[in-house]
């Protein structure tokens, strides 16, 4: 009897948790298809106002240019960060030395520095170097991050050293060993790192807000933030913009969900 009750409580808990987790997203999607008045009235069925909301949205904000910016910044950051940070993580693990351990400690310590402390010196540096409103400016601080370097160092730990030795005997250069042996074998670490980096870059609102000041260079998070600054909110239009902002991260999330869990398992161990 008590075991049955326990099972019931467990399922009830999981069902409630799942509904609460999914509901705000479902509501967002439904709201994007409805008129604002219907959203306010609490309507919970799909409407027919999607196209109208879309027309109003593109009249208000340059959605596709901002969407393009966000995609461009996030993809560039992800590709370059994976290459550069994995090289460093691998080197820290495979070629250990006193100096490198010191360097690694320094890298880990930067994790504690809050971004608001870096933001002002970086802003001043960028104004001098003409990096404001530039994609490359957005990318540079996100390429070599302690989290990624740590993830790849953990990945390199479980990479069999015999492979490296064997490749050396075959006369393969060190850099080629990295690209031809390590990279293909640690795919799941790369996948997990790609999810984390893409999400962080897409979500990076503060940094974008600091350096991107024109409509032509703004990102999607900045765009939806601009939509709520008016007095009257059109919920249909707003939720459509939120939906568009969510689609790329949702795709990455579903495509790589399994690898993310595997990669994290590797990183935590």
């Amino acid at each position: 009897m008590s075991r049955k009750l326990g099972t019931f409580v467990k399922y009830a808990f999981l069902v409630v948790a799942s509904i609460l987790s999914v509901f705000p997203l479902v509501w967002m999607i439904i709201a994007a298809t409805n008129k604002s008045v219907d959203v306010i009235a609490g309507k919970l069925t799909f409407g027919t106002n999607l196209l109208e909301n879309y027309r109003n949205l593109i009249a208000l904000q340059p959605v596709w240019s901002s969407f393009g910016n966000s995609c461009k910044y996030a993809l560039l950051v992800t590709v370059v960060a994976l290459v550069i940070s994995s090289m460093a993580g691998y080197a820290f693990e495979v070629y250990k030395s006193k100096w490198k351990e010191l360097g690694y400690t320094l890298v880990l310590m930067t994790m504690m520095v809050p971004f608001v402390a870096l933001m002002i010196p970086l802003f001043q540096m960028y104004s001098k170097a003409g990096l404001l409103n530039k994609a490359i400016g957005f990318m540079l601080p996100s390429i070599a991050t302690p989290l990624l370097i740590m993830m790849f160092r953990t990945g390199a730990k479980s990479f069999p050293k015999e492979i490296i030795e064997a490749a050396r005997i075959d006369g393969l250069g060190e850099i080629r060993i990295f690209f031809q042996m390590f990279v293909p074998v640690t795919k799941s670490t790369y996948a997990a790192a790609a999810v984390v980096t893409f999400m962080n870059a897409w979500n990076n609102y503060l940094w974008a807000k600091v350096i991107m000041s024109t409509d032509a260079t703004q990102t999607m998070p900045m765009l939806i933030s601009n939509l709520i600054s008016g007095y009257v909110t059109d919920y249909g239009v707003l939720m459509l913009a939120v939906l568009i902002t969510t689609i790329p991260t949702a795709i990455v999330f579903f495509a790589l969900q399994k690898n993310f869990v595997e990669g994290i398992t590797g990183a935590v161990k």
Binding site: A17, S18, I19, L25, V39, I224, M239, F253, Q257
Partner: peptide, 29 residues
């Protein structure tokens, strides 16, 4: 269940802030 509970992570930070702002607004859901 796992996917459902993990799903909120797929939303961007500004997005979910705006979703909750809209849900709890005076004229909200």
């Amino acid at each position: 269940f796992r996917t459902a509970v993990f799903l909120p992570c797929a939303t961007s930070l500004v997005s979910y802030a705006i979703i909750f702002r809209s849900l709890f607004a005076t004229d909200g859901f």
